[in-house]
Design a protein around this nucleic acid. Structure first.
Lengths: 192, 192, 192, 192
DNA sequence: AATGAATGAGGGTTCATTCAT
DNA sequence: GATGAATGAACCCTCATTCAT
């Protein structure tokens, strides 16, 4: 039984890995299900045993990859050693920007497809409780208010950094960072 | 000849109007060229007389509509009567948010497709010189610095308000506005 | 599996038969893939499972039909009972001319599309070894020389008989045959 | 009047020259009427003032170019200095093969499209009376018999030399010529 | 006579999805 | 559960031809 279950999980993972590679390489629209199953060495029908359609797969990938991004930042940034809330937030953001700077295709893929709702669903069932972490960092009790702050920061960073990282437009990321971080400090200091 | 030229312009406009209606109603992907020409009561081939493909048409529409948004704000907001740079900027943003709140489909359409580069190209050949206006408002001489500020504000507003206006998520626009405007005041006051 | 494979072969055959009928009836250019699959009672996509495009199908048909022509001549002409090389060659040609006289559309279809290279490819993988047969008939050891003789005869016969059979122009086939056969005797008797 | 007539003729010639260039360069099917008129610097409608459709133009071009081929051979080969009918015929053929060897695209274009009927129509209204010339050369009184001989030779030469010149297959033209010429000698010496 | 904008049927091809094996 | 042959609607685009100017 465990063997069968394992086998199924393995196939699903293979499909997701392959799809992620193809989506970020050739683009979502130009990747066909035929491409994915061919590359994953599976049959076409098998795809539909694991995903309702291409869009569900895409959504799962976006959720998975954004979660990974945050997981990494929580685990590997030294945000806990920082003193102020702003410094902590910036440590996390810095780690994430580092990651996506090295993986422009990932940035391209996630950014076009990540929405706030999807992000919430993505982190909902996750081992690490993001809400708690940000509550501690920011010192905001009210969940709604917390959400608004986090939402604003995530949207600001992800929308501005898309073009800055991928096209160095209007400036490159190293020039932009100080300015952006100063704004984020401002955001952290006021309350909604 | 003037008649012919007039006729051509009219056809082009008819195509753009129809396409805009369909894109915002059914969505871009679900709108076919066949749909557009059918609705516009033109032949399929005629489409290709005026646009290379669906994507060129989309780009032109996004540019046109975003330009209109700014034109309206410049013309009808009372930003000139405001005293401080922040108040002026907020007057303009307020007008734009008013406009898109009333046209959620327009917001959906533009927001997904507007990029900074496209926006610059859109306003480049325009009667109103946006650069000059923002220079005056913000009092920033350096064009590059000006661009960074404007870029940041546009990205912040458009990315946060998408979900806020269209899904009232994480909060609705009326609740969000005061917070957003406070952040923008902060942005206007610091320099990149 | 044997069943599936059988089914596939059957579909391919149905496509080729239908296409042949349509190509020879309405002409190649006026036959669309839609026509073929419609007549064969298959879906459009199925066509592309078996052939890259209309041209590959055409080429395969020409090869197949020319091979059939020769196979019939080898099998049913009494060329083996003839004494001289020339008589043997003429027996084969006579059989082929008989066949195409009865199927003018086949003649029209093949003749326009058969080239020497295609013919070689067509008979290459065939049960009957044409090279050996002609070597025996003509008594020419050197393969290159043999090829030149066979090439010349095939081109002469097929190019002259096209108009003679299909248009009785400049004379009809019965009048032309004696003359043509005399020329072929001459060709067989000299060596390249 | 003469001026207008001249102008019209000039346009027709420009269309034919351009079309010939494009047909032999890109191929008939891949050349559109738009291509032709664009290259000829005329309007699309103008094309239809001079030709019923693309096919009529093609036919006219084939006729024109084959006529030119023969005209050149009659004018510039030294066939009149030869003694025997066979030598005279071969002098003419040699000139034609020389011409087409230098213009493979012309060979490709004509050969695919020239038919006996078209050839007759082509030379019918021509300044040089081919029939008379060949009658004198071959010494055949009976027009029908003469036609059969000429037909056979033209078909033999043009069909065999197509692949030989364009593909050097099964041998190249220099190797093929002696053999071909020997066959033609045989043809000239027997009567239908 | 000349123009070229407009036409629209028809082309070949793709691909997400189904389902018999 | 896995397969992959079959489907067929839908796609974008071409281009010969017409006709108002």
């Amino acid at each position: 039984m465990g063997k069968v279950e394992e086998n199924k999980q393995q196939k699903k993972t293979r499909l997701m890995d392959t799809a992620f590679y193809l989506f970020t390489t050739k683009g979502f629209a130009r990747t066909t299900i035929a491409d994915i199953v061919h590359e994953a060495d599976l049959a076409k029908g098998t795809f539909y045993l694991y995903f309702r359609d291409k869009y569900e797969l895409q959504e799962r990938l976006v959720a998975w990859k954004s979660e990974e991004l945050f997981n990494h930042a929580i685990a590997f940034s030294n945000y806990q050693e920082k003193e102020t809330p702003a410094d902590k937030v910036l440590a996390i953001i810095d780690d994430i920007l580092d990651q996506v700077s090295k993986q422009p295709n990932l940035l391209r893929f996630i950014n076009k497809n990540l929405s706030w709702g999807l992000f919430l669903r993505a982190v909902e069932h996750v081992r690490i409780d993001f809400t708690k972490i940000f509550q501690e960092i920011l010192g905001i009790e009210d969940i709604k208010k917390l959400e608004v702050v986090v939402y604003t920061i995530i949207e600001l960073v992800s929308s501005t950094c898309h073009s800055v990282i991928l096209e160095q437009d209007p400036v490159d990321i190293e020039q932009y960072k100080p300015y952006l971080y100063q704004i984020i400090r401002g955001i952290v200091e006021i309350q909604p």
